[in-house]
């Protein structure tokens, strides 16, 4: 008889504690704020320190390869020809198939030209499409070309770096770059 009572009291206990849990769920259903983020329309707030896709301020870059050296996975490839202080760019690519977003490429830069942005949506259906080209132009810029051909004295640097912190500049460039990417895609 006792075991039968125990059996049914166990069932009653189980149902009771389940009901308590359901009460909590019901309370959350009615009174808690909605936490779901409707992703394509909105996104979680991303802090400005977020380690997303890189951005390169090409006119500042002095081709020192320190970022490539610091990279633990060798995902940065740089290729350029130096004409005195003028640089002829061939390649500056980051392979997002390898990149682990560790941010070790940022602190060694002596001229502070490589940054990380908050861009994260890199999904693609192309196996070779994850190598991003960071360059805004390749080869020489027209004014450098003219100078080199005219054997102008290389007193002035070809592209004077903008004075002061380039933070705002980099951000606006990110915006432009993202707009460009969006345009290409759709």
């Amino acid at each position: 008889m006792g075991s039968v009572r125990e059996y049914f009291s166990n069932i009653a206990n189980g149902l009771g504690s389940t009901a308590k849990g359901m009460a909590i769920t019901l309370r959350h259903f009615t009174s808690e704020p909605i936490i779901t983020v409707q992703y394509p329309k909105e996104s979680l707030p991303i802090p400005p320190t977020y380690r997303g896709m890189h951005i390169l301020e090409q006119e500042k870059c002095i081709d020192c390869h320190l970022c490539a050296k610091a990279c633990p996975v060798d995902c940065i490839e740089i290729e350029s020809v130096k004409h005195g202080r003028v640089l002829e760019w061939k390649k500056f690519s980051i392979d997002y198939k390898k990149c682990i977003f560790c941010e070790f490429c940022i602190p060694p830069c002596p001229v502070d030209c490589i940054h990380m942005t908050t861009e994260f949506a890199l999904a693609t259906d192309n196996a070779d499409g994850m190598v991003e080209d960071m360059l805004t132009w390749t080869g020489l810029r027209p004014e450098d070309q003219a100078k080199l051909e005219g054997k102008a004295s290389p007193k002035k640097p070809a592209a004077p770096a903008p004075a002061g912190g380039g933070e705002g500049d980099a951000r606006s460039r990110v915006a432009a770059m993202l707009a460009k990417r969006k345009k290409e895609e759709g």
């Binding site: 979680l44 802090p47 977020y50 941010e103 990380m116």
Partner: peptide, 27 residues
């Protein structure tokens, strides 16, 4: 998610923080 959001602010990543480094913290 709340903890992720808190730790993301100084470290810059949601899960694999790489924040504590030899000698101190990154920022």
């Amino acid at each position: 998610e709340s903890i992720m959001a808190l730790l993301e602010r100084p470290s810059g990543a949601r899960m694999l923080y790489n924040y504590i480094q030899p000698g101190g913290l990154r920022r």
